[in-house]
Amino acid sequence: MSTGNPVRAVYPGSFDPFTPGHLDVVNRARGLFDEVVVLVAVNSSKQPGTDEEERAAAVRAILPVEWTSVTVAAWSGLTSAYCRSHDVGVIVRGVRNTTDLHTEHQLAAMNQSLGVPTVFLPTQPELAAVSSTAVRTSGKWLSPMRP
């Protein structure tokens, strides 16, 4: 946590659904930053089963109530635009493997050019095989999820 001005971080994703890996990233991010916003975003390359408001409500229902420094917001624009308009200083991204890292590195470079740095948090080894797609296609909903 910072000692001066509070540092707000945003953790963006489509979260369709929110997985144990996502929960772990939020838990670790809240230890690094004063506030964490889970930003349920629209991704034009994905076709989620529900809209971002419904997914945001589902994430809120999963997060432990004692995590008072974590909020959830739905957003349909660029993450960097959200950061600028909501005084967020950093983007948090989880990475499971080298494919994720390559993709995320490109996004981080773009966001850095727009004035918002990115912090990568590597996935815990036991969660590396879990993806929203795998959870969705297996039909197994992993709730309640707690770290």
Rank of each mutant, 00 (worst) to 15 (best):
K140G: 07
L114K: 00
S14R: 04
R84V: 03
V72M: 07
A73K: 10
A41E: 03
A56M: 08
D51K: 14
S138M: 14
V92R: 04
D24I: 01
G94P: 06
T68K: 11
P6I: 06
L101T: 10
A128M: 15
D34C: 09
P147M: 08
Y11D: 01
R136S: 03
A129T: 15
D24H: 05
P48W: 07
S44R: 12
G77M: 08
G4A: 13
S143F: 02
G4D: 14
H102R: 08
G89S: 14
T50R: 10
L107H: 01
A128Y: 12
Q112W: 03
A134Y: 07
R136K: 14
A9E: 00
V92P: 02
A128L: 15
D34P: 03
D100F: 04
P144T: 14
V36L: 12
H86K: 12
G77F: 05
L39Q: 09
D34W: 05
F18H: 01
E52Y: 08
A134D: 10
S14A: 08
E35R: 14
G115V: 01
V116W: 01
S131W: 13
S132Q: 10
C83P: 09
Y11C: 00
I62S: 12
A73Q: 12
E54Y: 02
N27S: 14
R8S: 06
D24S: 12
E52L: 10
L127A: 05
E35A: 14
R84E: 10
G21I: 05
A9F: 00
T19F: 09
V92G: 01
R96M: 11
T98L: 08
F33C: 09
